[in-house]
Design a protein around this nucleic acid. Structure first.
Lengths: 192, 192
DNA sequence: CGAATAAAAAAGAACGTTCATTCTTTTTTA
DNA sequence: TAAAAAAGAATGAACGTTCTTTTTTATTCG
């Protein structure tokens, strides 16, 4: 029991170490030796928990993606009208992006790199199905434009990654992005 | 004269080789040895044109970013009303994203990696000043929401990177993204 | 309960490879 | 024929991974 806990701790420490290193210096900056050092572990130990470096990265990606999806749908009340639910989800995601900065940065770095397996990426996208379903419902009700879910995502969720990045790297002062008005822009882009 | 041309060719070949390799296998996949091989050149020759690998990447980034900005403002008629100009620029950028796919993919990979120097990135952003000026004009005329340029960019331009990526990696069939409707979404998000 | 012991986990050194870069020599150019 | 450009071999460092040894853990039996 205690042992199992310790094992989990070590695995989690390795994942977190990788996350930090990737954020700081990209995927090549996260060498197995450095990951081991940051996690206070021998390089050989990594291979008790992960097949190889690719597996470490894939698992980290899925891990963080799941955490992201979970918080996106946290406390959602499906009985509400479409716009209200969408608003809840949107603000959940905004919270994640602006509070779990490390995780959010990592995900946005993953978005465009060829180093995350496509198969893995597809699995990560599945978690967002409830949002796609919501959009479909909105379209059936005639309040959301009949656009592909890719386009809906691109205009409502994806922009937050950009804004989080700019804010984190302090290209813009932290009071520049007013969430309420930003949500309005997102909604205006897809509402009929 | 001819020599100078040949020099430029070689430098351009090196930049293009780097671009292709980075797209295929990330920044670590673009090793100096591989870049040299793809450009049909000795590894040592790279150092006649670039200080080191970081310089190669920085120059490539600036190069592609300039190409991008140039095509964004290609044939713009500043005498037109704000919305018309914005539409021109938006479709120019869309053309670039969906036609110069290699370059666009590279840029979107650069957007979130810590491997491009921040100083370099800042210089790349300068090129977009005319667009920021246009937005300001639109705000003075009361037809564009009083949002920070970061937010305006995030909701009108940035989404195209996502859509280009999905289309390129054929996650969605190429007729899914209808440009006219997509522009409407972009405009709706920022118009008053 | 506590020593003996088998098994699992972890460590650190070591592997061959590849990396970015430089040195020396050869080829091309003016 | 002098200088510039390019090549290829060579450098040490760092890479991902594996091998061997040590430490920790869990179990068995006196």
């Amino acid at each position: 029991m205690l042992k199992l806990q310790k094992s989990k701790d070590k695995k989690q420490a390795l994942l977190k170490a990788t996350l930090l290193l990737v954020n700081d210096a990209g995927f090549q900056g996260a060498s197995m030796a450095k990951v081991a050092k940051v996690a206070n572990v021998s390089p050989a130990t990594i291979y008790l928990y992960f097949e190889n470096k690719q597996d470490l990265i894939n698992q980290l990606y899925l891990n963080v993606k799941e955490e992201f999806s979970k918080s996106a749908f946290n406390g959602i009340d499906m009985a509400q009208p479409v716009k209200k639910i969408f608003e809840q989800i949107w603000f959940n995601i905004a919270d994640f992006k602006f509070n779990e900065v490390e995780e959010a940065q990592f995900l946005s770095q993953c978005d465009n790199t060829p180093l995350v397996d496509e198969e893995c990426r597809a699995e990560g996208l599945n978690h967002l199905q409830p949002l796609l379903d919501l959009w479909l419902r909105g379209q059936e009700e005639g309040i959301i434009k009949p656009l592909s879910p890719y386009v809906l995502y691109a205009f409502t969720i994806y922009p937050m990654a950009f804004l989080m990045n700019k804010q984190t790297k302090s290209h813009c002062p932290s009071d520049t992005i007013k969430l309420k008005e930003t949500f309005q822009a997102a909604w205006d882009s897809i509402k009929v």
